[in-house]
Design a protein around this nucleic acid. Structure first.
Lengths: 143, 143
DNA sequence: GTTAATGCAAATCATTTGCACGCAC
DNA sequence: GTGCGTGCAAATGATTTGCATTAAC
Protein backbone atom coordinates (compact mmCIF):
# COMPACT_ATOMS: atom_id res chain seq x y z
CA UNK A 1 0.00 0.00 0.00
CA UNK A 2 1.40 3.36 -0.94
CA UNK A 3 1.83 5.83 1.84
CA UNK A 4 -0.43 8.87 1.73
CA UNK A 5 1.22 12.21 1.19
CA UNK A 6 0.61 13.99 4.47
CA UNK A 7 1.60 17.41 3.29
CA UNK A 8 -0.81 17.29 0.42
CA UNK A 9 -3.61 15.84 2.47
CA UNK A 10 -3.21 18.53 5.04
CA UNK A 11 -3.31 21.28 2.46
CA UNK A 12 -6.32 19.68 0.85
CA UNK A 13 -8.27 19.46 4.09
CA UNK A 14 -7.75 23.15 4.67
CA UNK A 15 -8.81 23.92 1.12
CA UNK A 16 -11.81 21.65 1.31
CA UNK A 17 -13.08 23.10 4.56
CA UNK A 18 -12.61 26.62 3.27
CA UNK A 19 -14.78 25.71 0.31
CA UNK A 20 -17.46 24.08 2.42
CA UNK A 21 -16.67 20.61 1.11
CA UNK A 22 -16.71 17.72 3.51
CA UNK A 23 -13.72 15.54 4.22
CA UNK A 24 -14.57 12.10 2.95
CA UNK A 25 -12.27 9.17 2.40
CA UNK A 26 -13.21 9.02 -1.28
CA UNK A 27 -12.28 12.66 -1.73
CA UNK A 28 -9.00 12.31 0.14
CA UNK A 29 -8.24 9.11 -1.74
CA UNK A 30 -8.93 10.75 -5.08
CA UNK A 31 -6.61 13.63 -4.25
CA UNK A 32 -3.95 11.20 -3.12
CA UNK A 33 -4.19 9.18 -6.32
CA UNK A 34 -3.81 12.31 -8.42
CA UNK A 35 -0.98 13.45 -6.21
CA UNK A 36 1.01 10.33 -6.96
CA UNK A 37 0.13 10.16 -10.66
CA UNK A 38 2.87 10.85 -13.14
CA UNK A 39 0.38 11.90 -15.81
CA UNK A 40 -3.23 13.06 -16.10
CA UNK A 41 -5.63 10.23 -15.28
CA UNK A 42 -9.02 9.25 -16.66
CA UNK A 43 -11.88 8.57 -14.27
CA UNK A 44 -11.37 4.82 -14.63
CA UNK A 45 -7.66 5.15 -13.94
CA UNK A 46 -8.49 7.10 -10.79
CA UNK A 47 -10.90 4.36 -9.72
CA UNK A 48 -8.21 1.76 -10.36
CA UNK A 49 -5.76 3.87 -8.37
CA UNK A 50 -8.06 3.78 -5.38
CA UNK A 51 -7.53 0.03 -5.22
CA UNK A 52 -9.48 -1.83 -2.58
CA UNK A 53 -10.88 1.40 -1.18
CA UNK A 54 -12.92 1.72 -4.36
CA UNK A 55 -15.58 4.23 -5.29
CA UNK A 56 -18.44 4.53 -7.72
CA UNK A 57 -17.47 6.22 -11.00
CA UNK A 58 -20.38 8.61 -10.51
CA UNK A 59 -18.96 9.72 -7.18
CA UNK A 60 -15.59 10.31 -8.80
CA UNK A 61 -17.17 12.38 -11.55
CA UNK A 62 -18.93 14.51 -8.98
CA UNK A 63 -15.74 14.85 -6.98
CA UNK A 64 -13.51 15.96 -9.83
CA UNK A 65 -16.17 18.47 -10.75
CA UNK A 66 -16.36 20.07 -7.32
CA UNK A 67 -12.59 19.98 -6.99
CA UNK A 68 -12.27 21.64 -10.36
CA UNK A 69 -14.63 24.41 -9.27
CA UNK A 70 -12.44 24.78 -6.22
CA UNK A 71 -9.43 25.08 -8.50
CA UNK A 72 -7.63 22.07 -7.05
CA UNK A 73 -8.07 19.84 -10.10
CA UNK A 74 -7.73 20.56 -13.78
CA UNK A 75 -9.57 18.78 -16.58
CA UNK A 76 -7.75 18.12 -19.82
CA UNK A 77 -9.14 17.21 -23.22
CA UNK A 78 -6.69 15.22 -25.24
CA UNK A 79 -7.51 13.46 -28.47
CA UNK A 80 -10.24 10.91 -28.01
CA UNK A 81 -13.54 11.03 -26.21
CA UNK A 82 -12.63 10.87 -22.55
CA UNK A 83 -11.32 13.56 -20.22
CA UNK A 84 -8.25 13.39 -18.03
CA UNK A 85 -7.64 15.00 -14.68
CA UNK A 86 -4.60 16.24 -12.82
CA UNK A 87 -3.90 18.31 -9.74
CA UNK A 88 -3.55 21.95 -10.62
CA UNK A 89 -0.83 22.42 -8.01
CA UNK A 90 2.58 23.28 -9.27
CA UNK A 91 3.66 25.14 -12.36
CA UNK A 92 1.49 25.54 -15.35
CA UNK A 93 2.49 23.07 -18.01
CA UNK A 94 1.46 21.30 -21.17
CA UNK A 95 1.74 17.76 -22.49
CA UNK A 96 3.53 15.58 -24.95
CA UNK A 97 1.39 12.57 -25.88
CA UNK A 98 2.55 9.49 -27.78
CA UNK A 99 -0.08 8.56 -30.36
CA UNK A 100 0.95 4.94 -30.28
CA UNK A 101 1.39 3.93 -26.64
CA UNK A 102 -0.34 6.80 -24.90
CA UNK A 103 2.68 7.88 -22.89
CA UNK A 104 2.24 11.39 -21.52
CA UNK A 105 5.06 13.74 -20.53
CA UNK A 106 4.64 17.07 -18.80
CA UNK A 107 6.52 19.91 -20.46
CA UNK A 108 7.11 23.55 -19.67
CA UNK A 109 6.73 26.13 -22.39
CA UNK A 110 7.40 29.82 -22.23
CA UNK A 111 4.01 31.51 -22.18
CA UNK A 112 2.68 32.76 -25.42
CA UNK A 113 1.70 36.33 -24.99
CA UNK A 114 -1.57 37.39 -26.56
CA UNK A 115 -1.54 41.09 -25.94
CA UNK A 116 -4.47 43.46 -25.74
CA UNK A 117 -4.14 44.72 -29.31
CA UNK A 118 -4.07 41.18 -30.62
CA UNK A 119 -7.21 40.25 -28.71
CA UNK A 120 -9.01 43.42 -29.71
CA UNK A 121 -8.26 42.75 -33.35
CA UNK A 122 -10.00 39.42 -32.98
CA UNK A 123 -12.95 40.77 -31.03
CA UNK A 124 -12.06 39.17 -27.72
CA UNK A 125 -11.97 40.74 -24.27
CA UNK A 126 -9.89 38.31 -22.27
CA UNK A 127 -8.32 34.89 -22.13
CA UNK A 128 -9.14 32.78 -19.10
CA UNK A 129 -7.61 29.46 -20.06
CA UNK A 130 -5.84 27.67 -22.83
CA UNK A 131 -4.79 24.23 -23.89
CA UNK A 132 -1.71 23.25 -25.79
CA UNK A 133 -0.88 19.63 -26.38
CA UNK A 134 1.64 17.99 -28.67
CA UNK A 135 1.01 14.62 -30.28
CA UNK A 136 3.70 12.41 -31.72
CA UNK A 137 5.74 9.30 -31.04
CA UNK A 138 7.79 8.67 -27.96
CA UNK A 139 11.37 7.47 -28.28
CA UNK A 140 10.28 3.88 -27.91
CA UNK A 141 7.43 3.93 -30.41
CA UNK A 142 9.36 6.05 -32.87
CA UNK A 143 12.03 3.43 -33.51
CA UNK B 1 -29.84 28.90 -51.40
CA UNK B 2 -26.14 29.58 -51.15
CA UNK B 3 -24.13 29.13 -54.27
CA UNK B 4 -21.60 26.32 -54.23
CA UNK B 5 -17.97 27.28 -54.42
CA UNK B 6 -16.93 26.00 -57.81
CA UNK B 7 -13.24 26.35 -57.26
CA UNK B 8 -13.30 24.30 -54.13
CA UNK B 9 -15.61 21.69 -55.52
CA UNK B 10 -13.35 21.24 -58.49
CA UNK B 11 -10.27 20.80 -56.35
CA UNK B 12 -12.15 18.39 -54.13
CA UNK B 13 -13.31 16.20 -56.98
CA UNK B 14 -9.74 15.88 -58.18
CA UNK B 15 -8.57 15.05 -54.65
CA UNK B 16 -11.39 12.59 -54.11
CA UNK B 17 -10.76 10.71 -57.33
CA UNK B 18 -7.06 10.59 -56.66
CA UNK B 19 -7.82 8.97 -53.33
CA UNK B 20 -10.26 6.48 -54.80
CA UNK B 21 -13.25 8.08 -53.11
CA UNK B 22 -16.47 8.39 -55.06
CA UNK B 23 -18.15 11.67 -55.84
CA UNK B 24 -21.44 11.67 -53.98
CA UNK B 25 -23.76 14.56 -53.33
CA UNK B 26 -23.44 14.09 -49.58
CA UNK B 27 -19.67 14.27 -49.80
CA UNK B 28 -19.71 17.34 -52.01
CA UNK B 29 -22.34 18.95 -49.81
CA UNK B 30 -20.30 18.29 -46.69
CA UNK B 31 -17.24 19.86 -48.24
CA UNK B 32 -19.27 22.83 -49.37
CA UNK B 33 -20.73 23.36 -45.91
CA UNK B 34 -17.27 23.30 -44.35
CA UNK B 35 -16.00 25.57 -47.09
CA UNK B 36 -18.52 28.25 -46.16
CA UNK B 37 -18.22 27.82 -42.40
CA UNK B 38 -16.61 30.62 -40.44
CA UNK B 39 -15.64 28.25 -37.65
CA UNK B 40 -15.13 24.54 -37.02
CA UNK B 41 -18.47 22.70 -37.08
CA UNK B 42 -19.82 19.77 -35.11
CA UNK B 43 -21.43 16.88 -36.97
CA UNK B 44 -24.89 18.19 -36.14
CA UNK B 45 -23.99 21.64 -37.37
CA UNK B 46 -22.78 20.11 -40.63
CA UNK B 47 -26.08 18.23 -40.94
CA UNK B 48 -27.98 21.45 -40.32
CA UNK B 49 -25.80 23.16 -42.90
CA UNK B 50 -26.84 20.62 -45.51
CA UNK B 51 -30.38 21.91 -45.20
CA UNK B 52 -33.01 20.14 -47.25
CA UNK B 53 -30.37 17.95 -48.89
CA UNK B 54 -29.92 16.25 -45.54
CA UNK B 55 -27.83 13.23 -44.63
CA UNK B 56 -27.66 10.65 -41.89
CA UNK B 57 -25.29 11.58 -39.06
CA UNK B 58 -23.62 8.21 -39.48
CA UNK B 59 -22.84 8.99 -43.10
CA UNK B 60 -21.35 12.31 -42.06
CA UNK B 61 -19.19 10.64 -39.43
CA UNK B 62 -17.90 8.21 -42.03
CA UNK B 63 -17.30 11.02 -44.47
CA UNK B 64 -15.33 13.27 -42.16
CA UNK B 65 -13.26 10.23 -41.25
CA UNK B 66 -12.33 9.37 -44.83
CA UNK B 67 -11.75 13.01 -45.65
CA UNK B 68 -9.52 13.34 -42.62
CA UNK B 69 -7.47 10.35 -43.76
CA UNK B 70 -7.21 12.09 -47.09
CA UNK B 71 -5.97 15.18 -45.31
CA UNK B 72 -8.79 17.41 -46.55
CA UNK B 73 -10.50 17.77 -43.20
CA UNK B 74 -9.13 18.35 -39.73
CA UNK B 75 -10.72 17.23 -36.48
CA UNK B 76 -10.48 19.50 -33.45
CA UNK B 77 -11.05 18.73 -29.79
CA UNK B 78 -12.19 21.77 -27.88
CA UNK B 79 -13.58 21.72 -24.37
CA UNK B 80 -16.61 19.49 -24.07
CA UNK B 81 -17.38 16.07 -25.39
CA UNK B 82 -17.95 16.56 -29.08
CA UNK B 83 -15.48 17.02 -31.93
CA UNK B 84 -15.44 19.80 -34.47
CA UNK B 85 -14.34 19.69 -38.08
CA UNK B 86 -12.86 22.20 -40.49
CA UNK B 87 -11.25 22.10 -43.91
CA UNK B 88 -7.52 21.77 -43.60
CA UNK B 89 -6.94 24.00 -46.60
CA UNK B 90 -5.17 27.25 -45.95
CA UNK B 91 -2.66 28.19 -43.32
CA UNK B 92 -2.22 26.33 -40.11
CA UNK B 93 -4.01 28.16 -37.32
CA UNK B 94 -5.44 27.92 -33.85
CA UNK B 95 -8.60 29.11 -32.15
CA UNK B 96 -9.96 31.62 -29.72
CA UNK B 97 -13.16 30.31 -28.11
CA UNK B 98 -15.62 32.33 -26.06
CA UNK B 99 -16.66 30.29 -23.02
CA UNK B 100 -19.97 32.10 -22.79
CA UNK B 101 -21.42 32.31 -26.31
CA UNK B 102 -19.24 29.78 -28.11
CA UNK B 103 -17.91 32.24 -30.66
CA UNK B 104 -14.81 30.89 -32.36
CA UNK B 105 -12.12 32.97 -34.05
CA UNK B 106 -9.26 31.64 -36.10
CA UNK B 107 -5.87 33.03 -35.11
CA UNK B 108 -2.35 32.70 -36.43
CA UNK B 109 0.48 32.08 -34.02
CA UNK B 110 4.15 31.91 -34.75
CA UNK B 111 5.08 28.25 -34.49
CA UNK B 112 6.50 27.06 -31.26
CA UNK B 113 9.72 25.28 -31.96
CA UNK B 114 10.30 22.08 -30.05
CA UNK B 115 13.80 21.22 -31.13
CA UNK B 116 15.48 17.85 -31.16
CA UNK B 117 17.32 18.34 -27.89
CA UNK B 118 14.10 19.33 -26.16
CA UNK B 119 12.28 16.25 -27.44
CA UNK B 120 15.15 13.94 -26.58
CA UNK B 121 15.21 15.27 -23.04
CA UNK B 122 11.58 14.26 -22.72
CA UNK B 123 11.99 10.86 -24.36
CA UNK B 124 10.11 11.67 -27.53
CA UNK B 125 11.12 11.00 -31.11
CA UNK B 126 8.88 13.29 -33.10
CA UNK B 127 5.86 15.53 -33.06
CA UNK B 128 3.19 14.81 -35.65
CA UNK B 129 0.44 17.15 -34.53
CA UNK B 130 -0.50 19.60 -31.87
CA UNK B 131 -3.47 21.52 -30.55
CA UNK B 132 -3.47 24.96 -29.05
CA UNK B 133 -6.72 26.63 -28.16
CA UNK B 134 -7.46 29.71 -26.09
CA UNK B 135 -10.60 30.04 -24.02
CA UNK B 136 -11.99 33.30 -22.72
CA UNK B 137 -14.70 35.88 -23.32
CA UNK B 138 -15.35 37.63 -26.59
CA UNK B 139 -15.75 41.40 -26.68
CA UNK B 140 -19.51 41.09 -26.42
CA UNK B 141 -19.64 38.62 -23.54
CA UNK B 142 -16.82 40.33 -21.69
CA UNK B 143 -18.73 43.57 -21.11
C1' DG C 1 -30.30 17.58 12.80
C1' DT C 2 -28.92 19.63 8.60
C1' DT C 3 -26.59 19.26 4.45
C1' DA C 4 -23.53 17.31 1.52
C1' DA C 5 -21.78 12.70 -0.27
C1' DT C 6 -22.53 8.21 -2.01
C1' DG C 7 -24.26 4.18 -4.70
C1' DC C 8 -27.23 2.24 -7.89
C1' DA C 9 -30.29 2.46 -11.77
C1' DA C 10 -31.50 4.74 -15.57
C1' DA C 11 -31.10 8.51 -18.87
C1' DT C 12 -28.40 11.16 -22.18
C1' DC C 13 -25.05 12.27 -25.73
C1' DA C 14 -21.52 11.54 -29.01
C1' DT C 15 -19.75 8.15 -31.75
C1' DT C 16 -19.31 3.41 -33.77
C1' DT C 17 -20.71 -0.97 -35.81
C1' DG C 18 -23.60 -4.36 -38.46
C1' DC C 19 -26.15 -5.12 -42.25
C1' DA C 20 -28.98 -4.84 -46.34
C1' DC C 21 -29.83 -1.88 -50.15
C1' DG C 22 -28.54 1.64 -53.72
C1' DC C 23 -25.63 4.50 -56.47
C1' DA C 24 -21.04 5.75 -58.66
C1' DC C 25 -18.03 4.19 -61.89
C1' DG D 1 -21.36 -5.84 -62.13
C1' DT D 2 -18.31 -4.55 -58.30
C1' DG D 3 -17.44 -2.02 -54.52
C1' DC D 4 -17.96 2.03 -52.01
C1' DG D 5 -21.65 4.90 -49.91
C1' DT D 6 -25.88 5.28 -47.44
C1' DG D 7 -29.60 4.82 -44.02
C1' DC D 8 -31.58 2.61 -40.21
C1' DA D 9 -31.27 0.00 -36.03
C1' DA D 10 -28.65 -1.22 -32.45
C1' DA D 11 -24.35 -1.30 -29.70
C1' DT D 12 -20.83 1.13 -27.17
C1' DG D 13 -18.58 4.33 -24.06
C1' DA D 14 -18.28 8.42 -21.48
C1' DT D 15 -20.75 11.31 -18.67
C1' DT D 16 -25.01 12.99 -16.23
C1' DT D 17 -29.27 12.86 -13.55
C1' DG D 18 -32.79 11.13 -10.12
C1' DC D 19 -33.52 9.34 -5.88
C1' DA D 20 -33.21 7.15 -1.60
C1' DT D 21 -29.64 6.09 1.94
C1' DT D 22 -25.61 7.29 4.65
C1' DA D 23 -21.98 9.91 6.59
C1' DA D 24 -19.76 14.52 7.90
C1' DC D 25 -20.06 18.29 10.86
Amino acid sequence: MKKPCEKHLYESKAELKAAGLKITSTRLGLLDVLKHAKKPLSIKEIARGLGKQGADLVTLYRNVESLENLGAVKQINLKGRQSYFELSRGQHHHHLICMRCGKIEDIQIKEINLNGAFLKKHGFAKITDHSMEFFGLCANCGK
